[in-house]
Design a protein around this nucleic acid. Structure first.
Lengths: 137, 137
DNA sequence: AAAATTACTTGCAATTTGCAAGTAATCTTA
DNA sequence: TAAGATTACTTGCAAATTGCAAGTAATTTT
């Protein structure tokens, strides 16, 4: 949460906001799955600790990458979603997936999606981006 | 250095390799500047600590993102350079710069470069990529 | 009204970071 | 050629962060 920037380098500034081992995984969940609550994120395969999750949600919100809303179905739950600033991280995530595809073995359930992103990157980004934008509107 | 993967998710696996606050800054230096020694990296604006630098150089080398060679001018110095695997991170860094350009103020000395990357992304990536590949060859 | 869910918070041990000082192997200079 | 300067690390230790196990508090369900 406290994070003064280490330099004026934009890359370094970006890393100050979301350059840790967990933040981008939350962004990923919001971007490519239907997860949008605290409990949803907890269930992700990496097994984030509850306190870390709370702290990351807070800092991502402070950085305006995500926002927290009332959950329409429950007063206990919150509902998180990406802001435009968060949606704009999509091209970075896509490039990360494409890099991964080259150097890791891809789980079967992701192969088709990656393949789509590889064949028509701009189209793929636009598609996902629009889908996310509709959630905001 | 010890880092078993948290899940099979390629994004998470990538973050396990270089998803910390320092690794990508070393990659950045190797990619966009002429820095290539331990001392060079130390001088970067962010002020990395000597032990962290040593530890990151080691883990990046273990992940085959960089390699350490003899320095042609001195036996004391080492010379680090990107491997092809490291060079392939370029599109990710470029997207990070483009995102930054939208949400941070860009230092003057970077504006021209970013502008080039924005106008012709693929051309820009190819140019830098070739330049780096020549160092390997 | 009691039990279960959901979203956190708290306490604490273990790991990682950051800082200041070494150290060791070259190089440079007088 | 001996003394000092460079370069690349390593070490020790305090401070910060992480990870885990237990709470807690506000709903929701039964």
């Amino acid at each position: 949460m406290k994070s003064k920037k280490r330099s004026e380098c934009p890359l370094s500034c970006s890393l100050d906001l979301w350059g840790d081992k967990w933040s981008l995984l939350i962004i990923r969940d919001l971007m490519f799955s239907t997860k949008n609550t605290y409990g949803d994120f907890l269930k992700s395969a990496e097994g984030i600790a509850t306190n870390i999750l709370a702290s990351r949600l807070q800092s991502l919100e402070e950085s305006n990458l995500i926002e927290k809303l009332m959950h329409p179905e429950s007063k206990v739950k919150g509902l998180y979603r990406l802001t435009q600033k968060g949606i704009d991280l999509l091209p970075i995530l896509v490039e990360m997936y494409l890099w991964s595809d080259k150097y890791f073995t891809m789980p079967d359930d992701l192969k088709a999606t990656i393949e789509a992103g590889k064949k028509d990157k701009d189209g793929f980004i636009k598609l996902i981006s629009e889908r996310l934008k509709n959630k905001i509107a």
